[in-house]
Amino acid sequence: MLDYLNGIWNARHFWRHLAQAELRYKFRRSKLGIIWTMIYPLLLTAMMAVVFGSLFKQPVREFAPYVFSGLLTWEFLVSSVIGGCQSLLVSEAYIKQYKHPFAIYPLKTNMVNIYTFLLALPGLALWILFIRPANLLVGLLAMPLSILLIFMLGWPIVLVVSFLNLKYRDFGQVSGLLMQLIWYGSPVFYDPKMLNSPTLIAVLELNPVTHILNLVRAPILYGQFPALMDYAFVLATMLFFYLLALFMIWRSEKTLIYYF
């Protein structure tokens, strides 16, 4: 275990540079570059806020940042669960040349994901600055921890799905379906309060995604620190995925090379 962590630390220059390379490549391909990453969720938000805002009869001014903050965080989860599937597969050439701990490749993917997440945050901050400037202070205080938790959560998730996808190549499709299902059961583009159903609200309370979303929403939208319950749920989810990740490393890291 200590050896494994040591191996990750020793390879730090390597995965850091790989993440940089991937980001640079990602932004080099489009003319708008980084701007595009910031604009895309904004446009998507505008679309969804108008459609669902009128459907649920919500004022766009308030509803848009709600959808925006949801989409940002949701996109991070999607790129972890669906995008993360490819994490090991695309690193095959490296893996076959030099023995580094496999966990560094999910770590690299996770760094790219969190960076993309961070890039979209200023857009949200700007919006809030106009409608709720008072929230900015709490946001600045609470967000670092929220971001850290989201980052820490992403790593084991990517590791688990990339290990699974290497063994079962159709896992990608399954994870796509799974995320679609979770999407409907998560308050990304609707507010549980709009549902008028105590049972549904109770069910949503049990969905960890609700609490992950709250890590971002509570400080930015409502100017509050996330509730203890939110932290508890996120930490429990983290613990679950870290244990699962450790189990998979212990169980299959040794034979994984043969699945390429």
């Binding site: 390879a11 220059h13 390597f14 790989l18 390379a21 391909r29 040349q97 030099y98």
Partner: peptide
């Protein structure tokens, strides 16, 4: 194998070196 095709030769030298455990 193991080159980043979008990156320049110079960058690839760095990545490959780091892969092999260099600083």
């Amino acid at each position: 194998l193991g080159f980043e095709f979008e990156a320049s030769g110079r960058e690839n030298i760095l990545y490959r070196g780091l892969l092999l455990g260099e600083s």
